[in-house]
Structures are given as C-alpha cells and as structure tokens.
Design a protein around this nucleic acid. Sequence first.
DNA 1: TCCATATTTCGATAATCCTTGAAGTGTTGA
DNA 2: TCAACACTTCAAGGATTATCGAAATATGGA
Lengths: 117, 117
Amino acid sequence: MDERQALAAFGALSQETRLRVLRMLVVAGTDGLAAGVIAEKADVSASNVSFHLKELERAGLASARRDARSIIYSAEYDALSGLIRFLMEDCCSGRPEICSPVVDAASCCVPTRDIVQ
Amino acid sequence: MDERQALAAFGALSQETRLRVLRMLVVAGTDGLAAGVIAEKADVSASNVSFHLKELERAGLASARRDARSIIYSAEYDALSGLIRFLMEDCCSGRPEICSPVVDAASCCVPTRDIVQ
DNA sequence: TCCATATTTCGATAATCCTTGAAGTGTTGA
DNA sequence: TCAACACTTCAAGGATTATCGAAATATGGA
C-alpha cells in the first residue's frame, strides 16, 4: 500500500455511512451483502448507498459482483490489512516501543505463540 | 477509540499534507517539531500548515506546546495505536484468520516472544 | 414481450474542505 | 518600548464531496 492508496482509503473511511457499511461488509465475510440489504441496514436511500459503495470500491476497500438482479459487495480484506500495516509503519518507524499495545490487541486474533518467524 | 474519534482521525489522515506532517511527527518522536520547521519540510505556507496542524490536533492525532517563540507539535501515539486497534477490531470481528498478516507486520516492532500475558 | 425488481447514473443543490494573503497575537532581544 | 520573529486567525474564493429525486440500465419471471 502506497501513500496514494492510503489517502484514498482514509478518505473512504472518514464518512459515517461508509465506515458503517464497511464494518457490515467485514462482518458479512466473503459472502458479502447485496446493495439493497446494505441500504436497508444503513438506513439510507438506494442512490445514496450506491454512491458510497462506489467510493469504497474506488478506494479498493470493497469489491462488487453481480448475482442475478442483485449486486453483491464484499470487503477487501487485503486492502484493510494493508492499510493497518501502513499505519503501523508510521507508528513504528524509529519508535518500536510504541507498537506494543497494538501487538497486544492483535493477539486477540492470532495467539502470539503460533506466529513463527 | 469510538466511532466518532475514528471518523475524525480518518478525515485528518485523508489529506496529503496532513498525512505527511503526521509521519514527520511520528519520526520526530516526543521532541516534536516546530510549526515553522514542519511548514518548511512540507513545503507549504505558514498559515496553511497551521490550518492542517489544527486539524490533526482536533482529531486527537497531534498535540501542541509553546516553546519560546515556537509552537512545538508532536504525534499522539496513543491515538495512533488506538486507531490501529479500531481498524483491527473491524478487520478481525468474526474473521480471526484475516489479521495474521497484520500480526506478522507487527512482529517487526516487538519480538513476539517478548509479549507476555 | 412486458412488467417488476435491483441498482446505477445524472443533474442540481447544499455542505464541507482547502488555499491564500492580510491582519492579529504572543515572545524575545535591542 | 519597539521591532523582528513565529505562528495563528480571519475572510473570501475555489474545489471537492454529499444528498436528493428522477431517469436510465440490467435481470428475471409471467
């Protein structure tokens, strides 16, 4: 992830509806969610959710595929973890001790003793 | 870090000058940098850098203190790591396997075997 | 084929954000 | 106290972003 992509991603996440939608998509997993379902869950109009989904897509944080009449959106996990790594590079550069709380938080996901190398 | 703070932080980081300035501050460490130095490094006008520094401050990502004629800005590491944790919660919620690349990246900072508890 | 469904695109408007230069505030040293 | 310095604030303008409703596109079923 370069600066350009990071800027786009931060921009995408800086809007309330979009942040909520992305979180929905993350929870929904690889199955994704139809645009209509997202609109309903987020309580916004069809055209508005479409606008925001496009923004998330443009930023690389979501992707779309058609399924019959619906268009299914899903989170781009690689982009999300790339963004986290981008932030961590900032955070850690020159100051390794800063990141330990983050690493602690990460340990909720993957037991630290299982990380090899 | 709640949604409100995260939105503000993402907004702050979604602008090129601000992202660069924050990275400078992170590298500069707790000593921080004077506004004038930042302006020069970032190649923007005094009033413009002041505007962006205020935004970073408002988002909780930087703080200011006066030192003689200068105003010294420094990165708020807690906010930064809070933001990373916020993103990780999103990323991991329901999908623990996603975070492993992030944890790998984190291991560059703190040797995983040193994390106790 | 025709209609209903699901979503996107468009055009207009409102809102927010960024930039600039000029004026203002606080600090130091002569 | 006055001038220079370091920075901030202000007001105005331009640029980008968000929202809305209406019209357009694509799909599936009767």
